[in-house]
Design a protein around this nucleic acid. Structure first.
Lengths: 371, 371
DNA sequence: CAAGTCATCTCATACGTACAATTTTTTGCA
DNA sequence: TGCAAAAAATTGTACGTATGAGATGACTTG
């Protein structure tokens, strides 16, 4: 034990064992240690490197080096393998924007040596419950989850609390259950709905319909933005123009309601705000068959700015969704939370609410005075 | 993974996984590695340091660095956690038909109590290699994999053989490496390409162009079907009308080639056979801008019969791809193989070659005699 | 006061050098 | 040939320097 780096190692280790450095407490920076022990940075790094490897410390680029929480470590060593597994739980795996989110997350997590598992609730509570209990009994270090039926309170609250109790960190994407106050990554849907509507009002539309899927919080918030824009600009709201539907209805109800709207004689809408791009394309199809021209006779605006906006003959005006960036950010956050091994405490600043952005293309224009 | 020391790490790790370095065999000395990788000794030491820490190597002062004997370690990890894990390895996670395949597989596997992990090669060998080595060292009971660059022989053959040696069953989807004779689930792409072409010939087209992505076997086989149809029906093949492109080109080359084809005076194609629906929509967009009407002036035919076929104002004629059924079948097969594995039975009859089916819609019609 | 910018602190990667400690190989000599 | 000493090879410890990347808090600005 004459090597300098071993002396440094021993010195730091002692302080931890004596309780002079508490778990998650920052230790002196590398440059400070250089001065304290009068050695080169290299030597400091070798010493700390070994301590990190032995699980006494952990490093965070840009922030510092911290004392590890050894209490967990010993627990996990009883199960032998800290296997580095992350679960991503989605509502609809084949939803057109999900692949992007997953790709963003998967790329980063793989690189960090984690294994990514995918689960799919089909937006059903029972399925979500099954998955959550699997996660609890399984060997997962963290969870990225899109909550099921986020518009209402969850009957699976206990399962989420159990995750916290089991010290499995989780982040929510796209929407949250308010009561859990989780770390989240989502678009500001109120602003999104507002932008959609505002754009149409600015173009001169007065009779604007909307169709929102409201069993998820996303749709409800966008609807809120829709209403807000009307209020703010003093446009009277016509309740017959507000259409809401649920996941089960989504292939039927919007089309029916569109028929209804198109048949109106009075207060016929000149524009429709849509829940997402997919809905726009569904409606477009119907509208085409009725011989109505877009955007001249009817403006349509979507949401997500997905790959769908470019493939139709009329390019869609839409609202940008960060998709793979969101996935990446969520992945980074969950890794940080795992490293710190605290659950949802003092992680407020990790959350991100993305400001959506309007992208104007060809599916919206001024209302033509045909009536 | 751009850091030099990580590249070195990966390189050495690969050699071990491929069996090129046997346990207790000496690896190149630090100075040799400096020359081999053209880096400083420091960097070599960092790389080796991490490998030592992860248990891949051990060092002996004065003697050299040696390959560790991982046989114990691997056994212990595989016996301790019979966790029921399946890996699905795709080329492009956000490819528009993949979500369907995954959904089909995920639904079944979840139900059977398996955890599904997703990996993504981006159609790059290095990435595939990394993933395969993860699978080997990780804790997976079975693998569903879409091979990377399936048109050519794989440099990762040894990794696949290692999977077999480690008794981890795998099935291939969409394409195979012939040399491995794996269990597979794929569409008969030769027939698919034949159906596409035959349909156009039956409609009376004589000058038919095609655009196929040929770095994957799927495209090559479809091209084979394209040629076969011409031969069988005695239509002369015009080689200038055969366009092939690769994954990297896919956003540029098809468009350029389309421009070229449209400018032709003689032997101008009246129809284009496309690799998939996505390509059709790309081309449609260009064609629209040129003021050419589909299908009257130009017939286009796609492949996959994806959700994209219904989206555009001209519904696409396409060839049906079983997608989620394929995912489900692959999942069922891998479970069977896992169960049978203990009994060492052969898996011959499990493979499925799906007979594709033509779906005629509006994007194809008789050639109009305008010339 | 909130939001964005920027300087600064921190760790990460990578180059270079030198000498020590240990093992292996070669050499020189009896 | 046999053996010991010398030389060479190899890893270990330690110094120095530079640049990059992430986090943070102070500062500016609307």
């Amino acid at each position: 034990m004459e090597a300098k780096y071993k002396q440094i190692k021993q010195s730091i280790k002692s302080k931890i064992l004596e309780g002079l450095i508490q778990p998650h407490e920052k230790i002196s920076s590398e440059s400070e240690l250089m001065r304290q022990f009068d050695v080169s940075r290299h030597t400091v790094r070798v010493a700390i490197g070994e301590l990190v490897n032995d699980g006494w410390l952990y490093r965070e680029q840009g922030a510092g080096t911290f004392c590890a929480d050894r209490s967990q470590r010993e627990k996990s060593s009883s199960t032998i393998l800290p296997n580095k597994n992350i679960a991503i739980v989605t509502t609809y795996i084949s939803d057109y924007i999900f692949p992007s989110i997953i790709r963003g997350a998967e790329a980063y997590l793989s690189e960090q040596g984690y294994h990514v598992s995918i689960f799919n609730t089909n937006n059903k509570y029972e399925q979500e419950q099954k998955i959550l209990s699997q996660l609890l009994t399984g060997n997962y270090d963290g969870v990225i989850i899109e909550p099921t039926h986020s518009a209402s309170a969850t009957p699976n609250l206990k399962y989420y609390l159990n995750l916290e109790r089991a010290k499995i960190p989780y982040v929510m994407i796209n929407a949250i259950y308010e009561e859990l106050e989780p770390v989240y990554f989502m678009v500001d849907d109120v602003i999104g709905g507002y932008l959609q509507t505002r754009h149409l009002i600015d173009l001169g539309h007065q009779q604007i319909a909307c169709m929102y899927k409201t069993d998820d919080a996303q749709g409800q918030k966008r609807l809120k933005g829709f209403i807000k824009a009307h209020r703010e600009l003093n446009i009277p709201l016509n309740t017959t123009n507000i259409v809401t539907y649920s996941s089960e209805d989504q292939l039927v109800k919007p089309k029916k309601e569109l028929q209804r709207l198109l048949k109106l004689k009075e207060e016929k809408p000149t524009a429709i705000v849509c829940y997402n791009d997919q809905l726009v394309l569904q409606l477009m199809d119907e509208v085409r068959q009725a011989g109505i021209k877009i955007p001249d006779h009817l403006s349509l605006i979507g949401f997500d700015d997905s790959l769908l906006v470019e493939i139709s003959e009329v390019k869609l005006t839409s609202v940008k969704h960060p998709k793979s960036q969101l996935g990446l950010d969520a992945a980074k956050a969950i890794i940080q939370m795992i490293k710190k091994n605290e659950v949802n405490q003092s992680f407020d600043r990790l959350s991100k609410l993305y400001e959506p952005e309007l992208v104007v293309r060809q599916s919206t224009t001024n209302p033509k005075t045909t009536a």
